[in-house]
Nucleic acid binder design. Structure first.
Lengths: 338, 338
DNA sequence: ACCGTTTAAATAAACGTTTGCGCAATCCAT
DNA sequence: ATGGATTGCGCAAACGTTTATTTAAACGGT
């Protein structure tokens, strides 16, 4: 039924009785610019449609260097926080006539690097990335070669690569202070990946807020942004001699693990234990106890990141922009007044 | 610092003092096959590394036709159910040495078609898709042209395109029967997109189970797999003269909307209203009332879909395979015994 | 010494576009 | 009638690979 030979502009040129040059120009909307007659344009477009022509991006990009494609690399699509980001970025990019190709590094630097190579070999014009470690060698190299890059969420403090993220320090201070204001003195913090900048800043914010309140018995545990980590550390904390009255978890995955542990040990939120977490999520509102959380301006972050990326794409001059957006504290029901 | 000229195999050939043919062969691991001396191989690989060579996929694919890329198109990345699917597919495909490029149709057929064109013009070798409507013209055309395609989750009953999905009918029967077994007689069903096959089958299962139990006052409302739809329809149901004692929602997004409406009206689950939903999610376990749900074997679906796709990729013969996997009922606390 | 084989590598033609030039035909003003 | 401008379009060379075909050298057997 359908002809199996892939139709190219050569075929169109033949059928329409013009040169491939003319076909190329018309199909790229440069008909007017090169003063191709209306009649010829009509004919070309029509035969293209008839033959069911689909341009070969590869050939086009090979010649022109333009791919109209940017890449997005995130640590884990199955994490709703990142899935949301992917979704947002995708529409922003599409609105600008570009396509996004998404890579999932699975929190592994090897895979991240492999994805990076893949992207380069696909001639992507720009990159938005949530780097999975602090190992920025490959990324920096790409950036220095003039490829536009924007980090979001996680970033590098000393690499001079543009980023858009949340003011994590401020968020942590807000959360901790909220707990303190409600009379809590023993507040434990369960953290994620140590070397990640957001994690470090959140920890710093937590510490500073504690110290400012004269509370220098702060407790910091954990090492992964995962459910498992939240679960394990909470179990441990519950067994410690000085059991905290409040938990500050540094991601919603960690919070989920915590909740699981608390439930298993019949510790109810907020009566027996208060809980504040970083990252909002639609579900948080419907939990047995709706969780008070630090809400990141995800949408704004994505929009700004894409905006910066396209700015760089335009002016080949790259000026490194580094932006932190202010988070909000979303008050729900997981904090008890002591 | 870094040279800005993109290095190609030509550069490598020059530096290494061999022809580009030889470079190409060595870098493609065909050194042995073409009996390139060990010495030459070493030298080529080394200069490639030194020059920081990244192959140009476009040029390679242009010539060879091989892209080692498959496409995944889903209706919405921000829906955790699909994000999970994307994540699973991604690793399965990567394990086979291929890359996935993901498209988000945003539940709009126009965008879906546009993505489809994009994918074709990127010479993808195969496609896994969760089609967003029953309008299968474009997909069927691609399939008939010999491009391997597998539908997952949603599919077409009469288009002879391979699919892997859940036995939605059976799942709905299980859920409905569970409610009936617990003494419920007034069970309302809130559905999603009418024309989607899974939706139709779920509705059919619900009806059949009701009728089999002699309950022919079934109620079916709603028209979208969305939070908003769940919310709106639940509000309406609560005001109806014959208020149901149980709700069967056909997706977890719908369930979330329902829960919001129920909470606002102080209707507690399961005391005042029982609820069973399609689709599991890690969070469901931690809700104020953990939701009983129909759990789809997502992981198996993805694995099987990828397996079929690569089977087709291998034998150019495509035999349409259509598979339904059995779901499970996950019992939690949202159903009250009447 | 000669010739068929094997070994090791190069030549050159694609792949489907884009694009810098170039050129014939028509037009308009003088 | 002439010639410069304009109009409408084609030629052919890239782009960075892959790969079928050739070539050249070395080898081994008689």
């Amino acid at each position: 039924m359908a002809t199996n030979h892939k139709v190219s502009i050569v075929d169109i040129a033949e059928k329409a009785g013009v040169s491939i040059t003319t076909v190329s120009r018309v199909l790229n909307g440069k008909g007017e610019e090169y003063r191709i007659s209306e009649k010829a344009q009509q004919k070309i477009r029509e035969t293209a449609r008839k033959l069911n022509y689909v341009p070969n991006q590869f050939a086009a990009s090979l010649k022109s260097g333009k791919t109209n494609t940017i890449a997005l690399i995130i640590p884990s699509l199955s994490n709703p926080f990142f899935a949301d980001i992917a979704s947002e970025i995708n529409v922003e990019v599409r609105n600008r006539g570009y396509a996004t190709i998404i890579g999932d590094s699975d929190e592994k630097i090897d895979i991240e690097n492999e994805e990076l190579r893949q992207m380069v070999s696909r001639n992507i014009e720009g990159l938005i990335i949530v780097p999975c470690t602090q190992d920025w060698a490959s990324i920096k190299k790409m950036y220095d070669q003039g490829r536009p890059i924007v980090c979001i969420d996680r970033y590098f403090e000393d690499a001079d690569i543009p980023y858009v993220s949340t003011d994590n320090y401020e968020g942590a201070v807000m959360a901790t202070r909220h707990l303190i204001d409600n009379g809590h003195k023993h507040i434990a913090c369960i953290q994620g990946v140590h070397e990640s900048v957001p994690n470090k800043l959140r920890i710093q914010g937590y510490k500073d807020a504690m110290i400012a309140a004269g509370l220098n018995k702060y407790v910091i545990v954990g090492d992964e942004f995962s459910i498992r980590n939240g679960y394990k550390e909470t179990k441990l904390l519950l067994q410690s001699k000085q059991r905290p009255t409040a938990l500050f978890t540094l991601s919603n995955t960690i919070a989920m693990g915590s909740m699981k542990a608390l439930r298993e040990d019949n510790v109810s939120i907020p009566d027996d234990m208060s809980l504040v977490t970083f990252d909002d999520h639609p579900y948080l509102e419907y939990l047995s106890t709706p969780l008070t959380c630090v809400t990141q301006p995800t949408r704004e972050i994505c929009q700004l990141a894409v905006k910066h990326l396209f700015f760089m794409l335009g002016n080949k001059e790259i000026k490194s922009k580094q932006v932190l957006l202010r988070p909000e504290l979303t008050y729900r029901k997981s904090v008890k007044k002591l």
